[in-house]
Design a protein around this nucleic acid. Structure first.
Lengths: 323, 323
DNA sequence: CTGTTAGCGCATTCAA
DNA sequence: TTGAATGCGCTAACAG
């Protein structure tokens, strides 16, 4: 390291010929310090380039100005939007947001969770997508560390969670596709992928059954069942654009000689082809982020309790159509 | 807060009936501790759910396992790629990456920089895009805090910077467009926007003059100069897809009755229309991130010195074509 | 209004 | 191989 280092309260105290605690008080704008002294101190602080040692402050206070957001990655626009919106929402509450990426790797996830500590961050927001083993979280929860899950819920643990009401959203998407002319459906959600896809899958089947619309599923299709008896236009419904395009790429016969519609979540980039039309169910990232931060703040202020665990399900932002 | 809190070394020491410093040594796998004792201690630590208090550790060590990456936002794929790749590169060096977003706001930027401290992070990577006033960085630099700039350089400060060789990249993009058939150019880079665009702009003009290709510029166009004398195909060249699409939207006459080519950086989503073809110059985010982390590590290990300031310019990853 | 002091949790030096 | 003691920088309780 270089020969310079950050000045401390003591350095300022020496220069101003006052006690260290007077400096501490002056810099936190304590009303008990004489205005003159305060001015002198804050000026020297600026002149010396004083910056508080947050490690020391955190050690003492056992809390910090930080929320910690653990995200999978930033490739998906929903994931990066959630992070950005959480940063804004946190700023509104005078917190700074630290972001770490687990990149879907269990090892990194565990490492970050272990580093987590009430001294370092006042609370943590976890988007656990793709992470299977969440036992590391148990330690945090057991020590009453404020944790809020976002986007992807956990079945096995009773943690506060903010997510989209996937069941209602899937129902709305089905209805929108029907309104757009769909006469039959191919349900491509993979219920064994994660809880989000499972909920979407199940709700879609319920919606179709309730409306008496003919459909098949990805599972049935891959076990050889033909789609010939499904009337056109056929609507393919799935979570992500890429999965649908992969499917159509691998099974070009599905689209041959019939009209195709697509229903998916979050985003559709580029042309709908070979479909005539794509309906996109957009989640309310800003709303989710805000509710998440609100929940975290309330956990911190009211004292944490496992009993407070609950799931907050927000409605879709909107459904858009692309032709 | 709840009634549970994180156990400390003292708690473990009490349970194991040894001194706290023995526990400390045991958990850092110090060879001087008796294997039996060590085993007993590490088991109790796990049983109690011990996690080291990083604030205390940082306070004492004046350094940490963290690098801090300050990014503008995550909307641009280059920005989020840089962050992801930096996280991976840091992990390779046994560092964790903390990410903060300044969202282009001076206030947030200054706040984060002020929070920065050798006790909290061992070094910082800054993508300053859209931030004008970088005086907050001076304090860090003056205290020999390791800082590396990424992507967007600063003219006025002599800081280590890792970026693309924008001049060479612009030259290569021009050549690729010519190879694709361009007979004239409309140079839309805005040299007053930031240093990146200025470099691309200047290098493009140099490349065109050197090759004797007719061209006009965005500045000339907006001051009323007509493009009629530019032979087809005309190539529009700019940094971002959105800027080009905005331009074409506002000036539809430019594309009327002639073939259009487009040259841009980073990414083109969707159809090239009304252009016949788009050439995309892709930056080497992984390379940039790795070099940045390498630079940071060497700054930390060798001791920081302003004299070490230098700019590392990486070549493009590739130029792709979209028809 | 200001000074004195203790202690947050940890790693390390010095003693044994 | 283990124990005792120190100090990192800060804030707050207590004392003037």
């Amino acid at each position: 390291m270089g020969k310079f280092s950050s000045p401390t309260l003591i350095d300022i105290a020496r220069v101003c010929d006052v006690n260290i605690s007077t400096v501490s008080r002056a810099l936190s704008d304590d009303s008990r310090v004489h205005p003159e002294t305060k001015k002198r101190i804050s000026q020297t602080a600026k002149r010396l380039g004083y910056r508080p040692n947050l490690a020391a402050r955190m050690l003492r206070a056992k809390k910090s100005q930080f929320f910690w957001f653990i995200a999978p990655d930033l490739g998906n626009p929903v994931d990066s939007d959630l992070v950005e919106e959480a940063a804004l929402a946190a700023a509104d509450k005078d917190y700074d947001l630290l972001i770490s990426l687990h990149l879907g790797k269990q090892k990194i996830f565990d490492r970050i969770i272990t580093a987590m500590h009430s001294a370092l961050a006042s609370g943590v927001i976890v988007n656990r997508r793709d992470i299977e083993d969440l036992s590391a979280l148990h330690g945090l929860v057991h020590q009453d560390f404020p944790v809020v899950l976002v986007d992807v819920p956990i079945d096995s643990m009773n943690l506060p969670t903010v997510t989209t009401d996937h069941a209602k959203a899937a129902d709305a998407l089905v209805q929108a596709c029907i309104d757009a002319g769909a006469k039959s459906f191919l349900v491509l959600f993979n219920p064994s992928l994660n809880l989000v896809d499972k909920r979407r899958h199940d709700a879609t089947l319920v919606a179709l059954n309730a409306r008496g619309i003919p459909f098949s599923t990805g599972a049935r299709f891959s076990s050889g069942a033909p789609l010939a008896d499904l009337p056109s236009p056929l609507c393919l419904i799935e979570s992500h654009q890429t999965s649908i395009q992969d499917f159509l790429w691998n099974n070009p016969a599905v689209a041959e000689g019939r009209d195709i519609l697509i229903g998916c979540f979050d985003q559709w980039i580029g042309s709908p082809a070979p479909a005539q039309r794509v309906l996109v169910a957009e989640q309310d990232c800003q709303g989710i982020a805000r509710r998440t931060v609100d929940k975290l703040v309330s956990l911190i202020e009211t004292g944490v309790s496992v009993n407070g665990a609950s799931e907050i399900d927000l409605p879709l932002l909107r459904i858009t159509s692309k032709i």
